[in-house]
Amino acid sequence: MKNILFFGDSLTAGYGLADAGNESYPALIGQKISAEGLSYRIINAGVSGDTSGGGLNRLDYWISQPVDVFVLELGINDLTRRTAPSTIYNNLEAIVKKVIAKHPKVKLALMGMQLPAFIPGTLVAEFRAIYQKLADTYHMALVPFFLDGVAGMRHLNIRDGIHPNAEGYGIIANNVWPVLRTLL
């Protein structure tokens, strides 16, 4: 059996869900994999509040086991801490390089994030460019906006308006699945 490691923050962990073990997007992807009769074990390494730097610090534990597919979803929490986009990129790149060094045949997927266009200055463009550049440089499958169709939709998020509810994760899983399916 092959391993798919979902490595991210609260959006990967399934923060706020009644049953994250069955309702988070890694769990829903696991259900799709099972329905197709594919032999993959889902590993959810999501940690609420994690940043790209925090992810880099905890990565070694998770890649000490075999990893066939690595799905990376980090970076949005860095902005709440006012981390520069260049630092976010450098941390995410270091994560990818470590994964490749440990597992040279790994297949990689990146869950991109976006900021609302109404934010002033160059931050929006700089942040958005992180994910495309990383995907292009390391030949990663890319979901350009992980929260596409869910962000800003009150009925698809829990009370905080930031984290998806079970229905929202269903939409996310349906958006992510075609990208991950190409790697399997």
Rank of each mutant, 00 (worst) to 15 (best):
A135R: 15
P104K: 00
E93M: 11
G152N: 11
T122C: 06
T137N: 03
Y131D: 00
P66V: 14
P120C: 09
T137Y: 02
R82A: 10
I88M: 06
N90Y: 07
F145C: 01
V99H: 06
L92S: 10
T80A: 15
D136C: 07
A117G: 11
G112M: 05
L123M: 13
D78Y: 11
A94D: 08
A135Y: 13
Q65T: 08
T83N: 09
G121Q: 09
F118C: 12
L110M: 00
T80I: 14
P120E: 05
D148M: 04
V67K: 11
I100Y: 04
A125R: 14
N90P: 00
T137K: 09
R154D: 15
M140T: 02
T80F: 15
Y138S: 09
E73G: 14
F118S: 12
A151T: 03
D78E: 11
A101M: 05
F70G: 04
V124D: 03
V71S: 04
V106R: 02
N91V: 14
A84E: 12
P104W: 00
A94K: 11
R82I: 05
M140Q: 02
L123P: 10
L110A: 01
H139N: 14
K105N: 13
A129S: 12
R154A: 15
L110H: 01
T137Q: 07
L147N: 07
D136R: 12
Q65D: 08
G112W: 06
V67N: 09
N90Q: 13
D148C: 02
T122Q: 14
Q114I: 13
I76M: 14
E126P: 00
E93T: 10
T122H: 13
A94V: 09
A129Q: 11
V99A: 04
T83Q: 12
P66W: 13
F145E: 01
F118A: 14
F118D: 11
A101E: 09
V69Q: 09
I95P: 00
V143K: 06
Y89F: 15
A151W: 07
L147Q: 08
D68P: 11
N91W: 12
I130K: 01
V143R: 04
K105I: 10
V69I: 15
Y89Q: 14
F145L: 05
I119E: 13
I95R: 02
A141K: 06
N77R: 09
L142W: 04
K97V: 10
L115N: 04
R128H: 08
I130C: 02
M153F: 12
G121R: 14
S64R: 15
L108I: 05
F118K: 13
D136I: 10
V106D: 04
R81A: 13
I130N: 00
Q132G: 06
H139M: 08
P120F: 06
L92H: 07
V124P: 02
W62L: 12
P144L: 03
V143N: 02
K98I: 05
L142I: 06
K105W: 09
A101D: 08
L123T: 12
P66Q: 08
N77K: 11
N91C: 13
V99N: 07
L74E: 01
L134Y: 00
D148F: 04
M113S: 07
P66G: 08
N77C: 08
P144H: 03
